[in-house]
Every structure is written in C-alpha cells, then in structure tokens.
Design a protein around this nucleic acid. Sequence first.
DNA 1: TAAGATTGACTTATCAATCTTA
DNA 2: TAAGATTGATAAGTCAATCTTA
Lengths: 151, 151
Amino acid sequence: MSQDTADSDSHAGRVQLGAAELTLWHALKKISATTTSLMKAEIAPGVSGADYSILSRLEELGGPSQSLKQSQLLSSLGWDKSRLSHQITRMEERGFVMRVRTGKEAEISLLALGASVLVSARPNHALVIREYLSKFTGDERQILLSIAGKI
Amino acid sequence: MSQDTADSDSHAGRVQLGAAELTLWHALKKISATTTSLMKAEIAPGVSGADYSILSRLEELGGPSQSLKQSQLLSSLGWDKSRLSHQITRMEERGFVMRVRTGKEAEISLLALGASVLVSARPNHALVIREYLSKFTGDERQILLSIAGKI
DNA sequence: TAAGATTGACTTATCAATCTTA
DNA sequence: TAAGATTGATAAGTCAATCTTA
C-alpha cells in the first residue's frame, strides 16, 4: 500500500475534496451566485427575471402571432413543467399573456400589456447585463462559451 | 449621426443586447444553472446542500468546540440573515445543531447527529463534485479562478 | 397507454416588521 | 439607537398525483 500524506492532492479514490478542488468549487459557486442573482433580480417594478424570460421568448421565437406552444416554451427554458405552468398562471392573472388550450396542448400568446412591459424593461435589462459582461476579457469569454458548450 | 445596421455589434448606448452579448449571457446562465443544481441537490437522504454548507463550516471553522456565532456563519455563507435563521431552526428541529443565545448573539454548535450526517454525506458529495470538476481543463480552471476573484 | 398540462401539498427563499440587549 | 436575531406573510420552486385527450 502506498502512504498518502494528509494534505496530498493526489486524490484518486479519496472521499474528501482536496484544497485545489475546493478552491475551484468555491469559484464556480461564486460565479454561479453572481449570475443567478442577476437572473432572478427584478428587471423592472413588477417584472421578475422569470417573467422576462418568457416574455422575450414569445417575442423572439413566437413569430408574427407572438405565441408559442407551452411545450416549446418548456424546452426552450429547460424548466420543470409544473414550474412553467404555475408561472404562466401568474402571468395570465396579471394580463401579460393569454393561454388557450386546444386539445391536449396549450398555446401561450403575448398580450399587449406583456409586450409593453417587455419593451420598457429591456433597456435596464440590457444595461445591467452589459455591465456584468464587460468585466470579462476576450480570453475569458471564449473559455466561458466553450465550458457552456460541454457541460 | 452615424447609421447603425440592425445587426451591428457596436453596442455603445444600445438598449438591446447584441447577438454576441446574448450568447455570452446564455453561456453564463447555463454554467450557473448546472452549478446551482449541484449546490442545491440532496447530498444524502435528508441532507440538502444548504444543510451541508452549515455542517461543514461548523466542522472546519468551528475549532475544538465545533461551533460558530451565527453572525460568523452568516458572513461566511453570504446568505440573507433570515434565511439563515430559518435554516438553523429547521436543523435544530432535526437535531443536527444546537443554538444557544447569549445576550444578543447566538452560538451554533454541531451536535453528534449533525457530525455523523456530515461524515456519511461527505464521500458522495466529493464524488459528485469531483466528477463535475473533472470536466474542466487546466486553462479553464485558471480562468474560472480569476473570474471568481474579480466579480 | 402516453403526451401535455394542471393541481395541491410541501419546502424553501425573501422582505419588512419586530424583538432584545449592548 | 444600533447590532444581532426572530417572526410571519408572501412568493416561488419541487414533487407526486391527477386530469384530459390523442
């Protein structure tokens, strides 16, 4: 049997993370926390990040009718299906979107109020995200893209 | 006035994110979502990521008494103070930790049950995190560390 | 039966208001 | 009054069970 020193970073089979691993994990958690807080933040009074995701997808991917099947929204967002259902219900109550069920499917349409909310929230959203992105160098951007592509 | 084409990536003052910005933003969101889901996942039956964070801090930073002031835990975790208060209450109810209030402060101590839960959850935690970290190359790790250091 | 969606119960996070003591 | 912490209301996310229709 080989002898491992207590602080060894040779970690094959070890049941505890080593110092280098922990540092990397903490870095990922920090990046994630910062990004998540931007994602979730209120983009404008009464418009959450989740609202914004849905409104912008309806506008960008919804074609002339500015509407999508709920299942398309679901795969585009990658959310839990019941989370999406609850979210749409809440947005319906606020008059942002309309849901029409046809057979076993549901079609979600952008309403005028939702569209105007989207338009008025967009500048601030762009500003906040752009400021965040400006922190990254070209090298860092490249790496981030390649990481996202493989995880 | 200069004329901007519709797809211009020269974005000074633009109120909408450009394609390159959106791609980078989506990459960050994806990295963040993947990391967050690992952070939040149940590490062992009945042990959430939040539980684990607290238990491991008490063990690692708590000294011989394996205890910390609630305010120390708070700054170490970077959580909302009421989130921490609720979380500790739930962990107290499950017998993982003990809370003693002295004056206006509270001291949180690791109990035997919490320590044993921590020990038994650790191998699986290490395994899951290590598998995730193994996806990153040396270059990527370096960049991730430097990004975390400046945001 | 399977796909698409909804529901309700439960858990967790967040916010403002409040409490207690230095 | 300010620091440290708690509380309770509200909002949001998750899970399993259910509903509806192809």
